[in-house]
Structures are given as structure tokens and as C-alpha cells.
């Protein structure tokens, strides 16, 4: 089904840009840093600064703004629900804008809902910018390298990275297989999109069983193929691509620090800096 393709969120957009060329570790840590800043900020001005910064990163990464917004579309629903909950079940009291029976809308709750909703959008936008500009292979490499120091405390860095690689490799294949099975079942009269919720859930069983059986068969075959190519775990293994931190990574880190400082330091500090 084509709707399965529409689900692929935040797909990598291949391009030549300074953002694309950044070390994936920089982008992963940078995104985590931005998310942290996002949660720490309490001011609207902070969100405005972060929006401008993300806009700048998008522009530097040669991503069309319209494309980025389209990528965020599925999140808007979530945001809408979050805002409605905040407005309906937020703190009582404050300036009442609207009242009907038990339904009370206050200005404070509306503002808070908008703030949290917008923060949620920025949160997803920040991670989407990363996935737009970092291929899954780079992401995996970056994660493996970031986790490597934790191997000593038992984090299986190589195995996790390999699992992620294989998962990423097989997601499209399994989607194709799902489509094939669905079409085969539909040709024999199966209905996936009609009937009660229970009927629809039941209709999924003849889809899921062959899908799982197929996945296990594939896993078996893949393990054999990996063994045939001399795979014996992470020991003795080298990588074709080595990650290297370049000057631009330090520049990016510096910019992230500046943004965090602008957003998080109280206005009084900035006034003092400006006054001097």
C-alpha cells in the first residue's frame, strides 16, 4: 500500500552542504543539546531564537522550508491534542475568555498550550533536521562511536549498531513484503479497510503471521550470508569509513553554545553585557 511509504518520517535528503558534511557525532550530540535547551527555556523569546537557529540550519543544509514543514505535518495532530488538553485541563483561575457549562477557557491556559505545543513542534523539527541531513549509515556509525567508550560497562556498541543497520536495511524490504502479502490476501477476498475495529484487527492476523514467518526465515538466511562473509562479531573488525572531527565541527559546537547562552542566560545578564 502506498500509505506505508507516506509514513517514512524525516527521510534523509541527499545534498552537498556544510550541515551534511558535519561529523554525525556532532549532529547527534548537537541535537541532544538543542533538545535540552528547548526543555530548559521558559521564555517565548527563547523559542523565537531557537526557531531562527533551526531555520538557519535548514537553509545551510539546503532543505526547502516547505519540505521541512510537510515533514512535520503528522506532528501537528499531536500538537493539537496537546494544546486542547492544556486548555481544557490546565490550572483553573486566571483571565476567563470563554465559559460554557464545565468548559472554561482561560488566557493563561491558552498561552501555555500554545507555548508547549510550539515547543513540541520545535523538538520534532530539531530531530528532523538531523535526519534530513544525516544518512542512516552515518547515524549508525556515529552512535556506534559515541557508545564505544561505554563498552567497558557492558554496552554492546557494535552489536547495537549492527542491529540498527540491519533494521534500516530491511524496513523497506519488509514493507514490500507486507504489500505483497496484503495484495495476495485481498485477491482471495480479505478486507483490511472495512468492518468493525475487531474485524479489522482480526483481518491483520493472516497478514502478520506470514510476515513474521518470512522475517524469521530471512534472519536465518542473513545470518548464514554474514557468516559466509567472515563475520565473527565486533572483534578484529575495521571500518571502511572512519569518522574525523574537522574544524567545521568545532564551529558548529561553538554556535550551539552561543545559542544556548542566548536562550538560557537571564535577560539581566544580557542587559549587563550590553550596558558595558
Amino acid at each position: 500500500m502506498d500509505f506505508l511509504r507516506g509514513l517514512m518520517l524525516g527521510q534523509y535528503v541527499p545534498a552537498e552542504s556544510p550541515v551534511h558534511r558535519l561529523d554525525p557525532r556532532t549532529k547527534i550530540l548537537g541535537t541532544m543539546w538543542l533538545v535540552g535547551v528547548l526543555f530548559a527555556t521558559r521564555s517565548l523569546a527563547g523559542l523565537v531564537v531557537l526557531t531562527a537557529f533551526l531555520g538557519g540550519v535548514l537553509a545551510a543544509g539546503r532543505i526547502a522550508p516547505a519540505y521541512a514543514v510537510r515533514g512535520l505535518r503528522p506532528v501537528f495532530w499531536l500538537v493539537g491534542i496537546a494544546v486542547v488538553f492544556q486548555v481544557l485541563f490546565g490550572d483553573s483561575g486566571g483571565h476567563v475568555l470563554f465559559r460554557r457549562g464545565p468548559l472554561v477557557v482561560t488566557r493563561e491556559n491558552l498561552a501555555a498550550g500554545a507555548f508547549y505545543g510550539y515547543r513540541l513542534i520545535l523538538l520534532v523539527a530539531a530531530t528532523t533536521v538531523m535526519t534530513f541531513t544525516t544518512s542512516s549509515v552515518e547515524l549508525t556509525d556515529g552512535l556506534e562511536r559515541l557508545l564505544r567508550p561505554f563498552r567497558r560497562v557492558g554496552v554492546p556498541a557494535h552489536e547495537l549498531a549492527l542491529m540498527m543497520t540491519i533494521a534500516l536495511r530491511f524496513i523497506p524490504t519488509l514493507f514490500e513484503e507486507t504489500e505483497t502479502i496484503m495484495k495476495a490476501q485481498m485477491a482471495r477476498g480479505a478486507e483490511f479497510a472495512r468492518g468493525s475495529l475487531v474485524a479489522r484487527a482480526r483481518a491483520l492476523i493472516p497478514l502478520l503471521v506470514p510476515l513474521f514467518v518470512g522475517a524469521f526465515r530471512r534472519a536465518d538466511a542473513l545470518a548464514l550470508a554474514m557468516e559466509a562473509r567472515g563475520y565473527r562479531g565486533g572483534e578484529h573488525r575495521t571500518r571502511m569509513k572512519e569518522l574525523r572531527v574537522a574544524v567545521r565541527d568545532y564551529v558548529a559546537a561553538g554556535m550551539l553554545l552561543v545559542v544556548a547562552a542566548i536562550v538560557l542566560l537571564p535577560p539581566s545578564v544580557w542587559r549587563a553585557v550590553a550596558g558595558r
Partner: peptide, 15 residues
């Protein structure tokens, strides 16, 4: 194994 052709070709050599 890998999500990109050249990464897959490299797999055996990496091993």
C-alpha cells in the same frame, strides 16, 4: 546487510 551498496560491499573486508 547494509543500507548502502558500497557499505555492503565493504562488509566482508571489514570482517
Amino acid at each position: 546487510i547494509a543500507a548502502v551498496v558500497e557499505e555492503d560491499v565493504a562488509f566482508g573486508c571489514e570482517n
